[in-house]
Design a protein around this nucleic acid. Structure first.
Lengths: 209, 209
DNA sequence: TAGAGTCATGGCGGTTGCTGTCATGACTCG
DNA sequence: CGAGTCATGACAGCAACCGCCATGACTCTA
């Protein structure tokens, strides 16, 4: 494999993180990133589909990690247990050791809606991948989706707290969030208003206004 | 208020929906949308922040509707009950009567990742708004976030099924999803593997690999 | 009815993200 | 040493999006 200086992708990632930190995502041009990495703009777009993707390149590996963890969970584990186990595993084995990088990265993302959009679609991809892994465990479609989405929702909340400077480890925060979620769900959502449940069974009328 | 032909915004929305349907989002230029609406490209960007936003203009109203519904839920309702009640109310009062429009719109969104990103951030905004409404009911931050995110997660799954041609009403599908979510959460996520819970309490080691 | 003010719109020029295409030069292998 | 592969660069071009200013429709008031 012919190459000039090695690690072009890594250099681009590093340069982008620096520049996004220094002057913000919007005030950074792709040309500037490429220049700092000693490459051309054209080459940037050969490594990353767009200007945002440079911050999300690791998500593919995370997705595979989570899918594998879910599949390898003990056969006795409930769907949600398999999911949260995988998330805690990722938290301690992947996230914790990159704490500073992730905090920095999150600060950039929090400052920009376009980057938040990208982050959300990556989270959605994780949920989809987890759903597929649960299905491979023999779980039905609906509970698979819901366990995956609920798990990701808890992770999202936990990660936000952790990235803002929580003292506890991410795995701990994730666990606390999942336990709280179970409590919230256990309180039930059964017909808060009689009219509601009738409308649910019959149609749109009865609640209309 | 000086005006030429009324309903410029509506004409742009309509033209965009048509063109996105006909030839896809990517193969449609803003100039084409504006032309079909009898306006200029420049004017399009006065009404909509970008090319995607034209499909999501109603989400602000939905957000306010949900926040109000959550606040007005009976005082006895649990957080999740308040949220799902609001979602079912929106389903029957807002979504059902625009079924065909929404299905068409969803087909466009499903075909394009950029639009999916936008949809996800709108859903996240709904969750944030619902979280704030729960807080106003006196609910703590963590359960507020989780009830909101879990409710939106259930709605997301339900809406996807409904928009693909489910026979039942959206409110019914939402209710079924929430009930399934409760079941999934009730099975618990408690330590599927003894090593997991130790790791959660202690640190990253113990699970490491 | 005329003049002033408001406001939606159009037109224009510019920046930037992103792409297709082709040339170049580094590296590998025989 | 020559041929082939492959990462890169250079260039041209499109479309999204924005700032700026002009224009003309509409309203209000005297």
């Amino acid at each position: 494999m012919g190459r000039w200086a090695p690690g072009a992708r890594g250099r681009l990632e590093y340069a982008a993180l620096e520049l996004y930190s220094e002057r913000g995502f919007e005030n950074t041009t792709v040309t500037e990133i490429a220049e700092r990495a000693g490459l051309s703009e054209r080459t940037f777009f050969r490594y990353f589909a767009d200007k945002r993707e440079v911050l999300f390149w690791g998500s593919q590996a995370l997705q595979e990690f989570l899918a594998r963890s879910v599949e390898e969970a003990p056969a006795t584990a409930s769907p949600l247990a398999a999911v949260t186990g995988a998330l805690e595993k990722a938290a301690s084995e992947i996230f914790e050791e990159r704490r500073e990088l992730l905090w920095r990265r999150q600060k950039i993302i929090s400052a920009n809606p376009e980057l938040q959009e990208r982050e959300l679609i990556k989270l959605a991809a994780l949920a989809k991948s987890i759903t597929a892994a649960l299905r491979r465990r023999g779980v039905q479609e609906l509970p698979s989706s819901l366990a995956a989405e609920a798990g990701i929702a808890a992770f999202k909340v936990a990660f936000a707290a952790w990235a803002q400077g929580e003292g506890r480890s991410l795995a701990q925060v994730v666990r606390a969030a999942v336990e709280e979620l179970e409590r919230v769900a256990a309180q039930g959502a059964g017909a808060p208003d009689p009219a509601q449940s009738l409308a649910g069974a019959g149609g749109a009328d009865g609640v209309g206004g």
